[in-house]
Design a protein around this nucleic acid. Structure first.
Length: 281
DNA sequence: ACAAAGTCCTGCCAGC
DNA sequence: TGCTGGCAGGACTTTG
C-alpha cells in the first residue's frame, strides 16, 4: 500500500463512517505499546477508557482522522507511513502487524489497526470530539470549506524556504505529502526548490489550484475502488496505477514534453520533476 | 546496505 | 529578556 496522504486517509474515513459509526466498543486490546505512544496515560488506560463508548461520527483534517465518542472524547489517529484500519470478521486470522483490536457490543466485525513501520498510532483525546487539541497545531487542509486561499498565499509568500518544503509543512497546509507535492508541482510547472517568496502570486495561485485538483482526483479514484461492501478500510486509492505524472517515474518521458523525468534527493526524500517544464530559475 | 517518508525534536537565529 | 516563529537537519522505524 502506498504511503497515505490526504486522499487515502479520506478513503479510510469514508470506510469507517460506513462500518463503525453508531457502534459501541465492548473491548480494546493493545498488542504493541508503540501504537498508542501518543496516549500519555498508557496502553491500559487506552483500553479501559474506551470500553463502553459509542462512536458517533468520523472526522478528518489533513492526514489525521478522529472518531468522536458519546463521552465528548475522541479517538485520534494517524496512519503514518504504513498504517491501516481494517474491518475484519472476529474469526479472521490475526495480521502480522496487528497492534490494536476493537471488539464491539454487537459482536460484529472488529476494527483493527495494523502498522508495519509503526510511525502511525492512536490515542484518546480528552474532550477532543470537535477538534482534538493534539492536532490543533496542524493547519487546515485545502479541501476544508473554511480553508482561506488568501491566508495560505500570504503565509507562503512570507516564507524563504523551498516551495516543496512549504507544501510539506503541515502547519502551513495539511494533507500534502511527498507524492502529491511532486504531482502538484509538476502540474503547476514549478520546481520544488524555488524559494516560496520568489513565486509570483499567479504562480502560487496556480500551485494551490493544482494541489486541490490532484487531491480531489485521488479521492474520486479512491472512492470508486471502495464501493464493494466487503472491501476493507485500507486506504487503497486506486490512483497510483493511473494518475501519477512525475512521482516514481525517473527516466520515463514527461507526459507533457517527453523529457526524461529526473529524480533528486531533497529533504532526505526523493523528488521527481521534469527538468524542462519545471525550471529551477 | 539502502531506500521508503510520515511527524517530532533540537538547536540556532531574527525580530519584537 | 523572553517569547515566538522560521528554518534545517536529524531521529525514529521496518522490510525487502
Amino acid at each position: 500500500m502506498a504511503v497515505p496522504e490526504l486522499p487515502e486517509v479520506e478513503t479510510v474515513r469514508v470506510g469507517l463512517e460506513r462500518w463503525v459509526v453508531g457502534r459501541t466498543i465492548a473491548k480494546v486490546k493493545v498488542g504493541h505499546p508503540r501504537a498508542v505512544r501518543r496516549h500519555v496515560a498508557g496502553p491500559k488506560d487506552f483500553e479501559r477508557v474506551l470500553a463502553g463508548r459509542t462512536i458517533i461520527s468520523t472526522r478528518r483534517r489533513g492526514k489525521y482522522l478522529w472518531l468522536p465518542l458519546d463521552s465528548g472524547d475522541a479517538i485520534v489517529g494517524h496512519l503514518g507511513m504504513s498504517g491501516q484500519m481494517l474491518v475484519q470478521p472476529v474469526t479472521a486470522p490475526l495480521e502480522k502487524h496487528l497492534h490494536i483490536r476493537f471488539d464491539f457490543t454487537d459482536k460484529g466485525p472488529q476494527l483493527r489497526f495494523i502498522d508495519q513501520r509503526t510511525f502511525g498510532g492512536l490515542a484518546v483525546s480528552v474532550g477532543g470530539a470537535e477538534l482534538p487539541q493534539e492536532i490543533a497545531h496542524i493547519g487546515k487542509d485545502p479541501l476544508e470549506e473554511s480553508f482561506v486561499d488568501k491566508d495560505f498565499l500570504v503565509r507562503l509568500s512570507g516564507r524563504r524556504t523551498a516551495v516543496k518544503r512549504a507544501l510539506l509543512d503541515q502547519t502551513l497546509i495539511s494533507g500534502v505529502g511527498n507524492i502529491y507535492a511532486d504531482e502538484a508541482l509538476w502540474r503547476a510547472k514549478i520546481h520544488g526548490n524555488r524559494p516560496s517568496d520568489e513565486l509570483s502570486r499567479p504562480a502560487a495561485q496556480r500551485l494551490l489550484a493544482h494541489v486541490k485538483e490532484v487531491l480531489g482526483e485521488a479521492i474520486t479514484a479512491g472512492g470508486t475502488s471502495f464501493d464493494a461492501l466487503y472491501v476493507n478500510v485500507n486506504g487503497e486509492s486506486g490512483y497510483f496505477e493511473r494518475g501519477l505524472n512525475a512521482y516514481g517515474r525517473e527516466g520515463e518521458p514527461c507526459p507533457r514534453c517527453g523529457t526524461a523525468i529526473k529524480r533528486s534527493t531533497f529533504m532526505n526524500r526523493s523528488s521527481f520533476f521534469c527538468p524542462k517544464c519545471q525550471r529551477e530559475r
